[in-house]
Computed example of a mutant assay.
Amino acid sequence: MEEVAGTVLAGRSFEPIRGHVVVEDGRIQAIEETETESTDIVLPAFVNAHTHLGDSVAKEAAVGLSLDEAVAPPDSLKHRQLAAADRSELVGAMRRTLRFARRTGTVSCLDFRESGTDGANALREAARTVDVDPFIFGSESPSVLDVADGYGASGANDDDFTEERAACERRGVPFAIHAGEPDATDIHPALDLEPDLLVHMVHAEREHLDRVRSQSVPVAVCPRANTVLDVGRPPVRELVDHTTVALGTDNVMLNPPSMFREMAYTAKRFDVTPREVLRMATTAGAEIAGLDCGVIAPGRRAALTVLDGDSDNLADSVDPVRAVVRRATALDVERVVG
């Protein structure tokens, strides 16, 4: 049995409780309010709701390029780099990124993995020695579902994904798709596929938001990547008002997968509260993928990020939730549990 002490951001509301989390066999047994000398801040470990870990082989390569030049299939710089990378190089690069994610408080990521079955297997291999469990949205053909956790489509304007959607339905696994990143033309076609997750929705308008609500489709937003690629600003406030919204860091070649950076950027640039942003970085991604983490509550997996609340950066903060979302960095992480 282990006790993780400090200011615990407990439950779905992240209520600050002075005390400790009782952990046994990897699960939370109790949250006990009690006196403690610990100045640590204990929060749910992060779930990064949208990554492209394969891009780890080409960090910074796409800076300054347009969306099409950088990432559009099949001839963008990203896809040329992936085609040129050998398997050992790819696995090693993704493993390094996963290690960075773990050190910065992330225990899972929802990854769109290119290159079909070979790509999904390469990510499984990369994660084997790292305490981050990627939820893999595979690509290319329905057969990828033999090794992936779901299917991740590039966009409804790129191809007809009805066969892949049907395969996900038969297997009872999620179908996710990019939508509304360059413009709004692919949003209705994406929604026609009845996806389990939409990614980006930068150009979502009222008619799209109403469909998202009526179909109960969650959305992963990636504000920093949208800024770097100059595609616009997602309507984060409106999305939060209509559905479950999770936070992702998107392409590794453009952004390090730091949820601290993504939270701070989102909190400072959009009309959302710190608690909403923290929920986007933890609970929402876990719920989308059906993971037993993302919230500190009895009976749940003990996946915790422990911050030094007395660090030079965080000391004297008047609100622990606000401090975690707007101020904390990787340097404040003492350890990641679970």
Rank of each mutant, 00 (worst) to 15 (best):
T185G: 15
I187C: 01
L193E: 04
V219T: 00
D186Y: 11
S143M: 11
A156S: 15
H178Y: 05
A153D: 08
E194S: 14
P195W: 07
S143A: 14
H178W: 05
V147Y: 14
L229H: 03
V173Y: 04
F161R: 07
V217M: 04
V217I: 15
P174V: 13
A156V: 11
E140M: 15
D146M: 02
R171A: 14
A225M: 02
D160P: 09
V228T: 10
V199C: 02
E207K: 09
N157W: 14
V212N: 01
T185N: 13
D133N: 08
S214P: 11
L193Q: 03
F137E: 13
A166M: 11
N226P: 06
G150R: 11
E169C: 01
E194V: 08
G152E: 10
A153T: 14
C168Q: 13
R170W: 05
L145P: 08
A153W: 04
S216L: 12
A225E: 01
A166S: 15
S154I: 06
V212R: 04
G138I: 13
D158P: 01
D133K: 11
F175V: 06
A190G: 12
D133R: 11
Q215D: 10
R170K: 13
D210T: 06
R213L: 02
V212Q: 06
N226K: 02
V173D: 07
S154R: 06
V217T: 12
L145C: 12
S216T: 13
S141W: 10
L191V: 09
E163F: 08
A220Q: 02
D160A: 08
A204M: 02
H200G: 00
E207F: 02
L209D: 04
C168V: 11
S141N: 09
A184M: 04
D186M: 11
A156I: 08
R211L: 15
P174R: 15
G172I: 12
S154E: 05
H208K: 03
S141G: 10
T227R: 10
H200V: 01
E207D: 13
F135A: 01
V144T: 15
I187N: 01
R171D: 07
G155L: 00
G180W: 01
S141H: 14
S216K: 15
V173M: 04
A156Q: 10
I187G: 06
S141A: 14
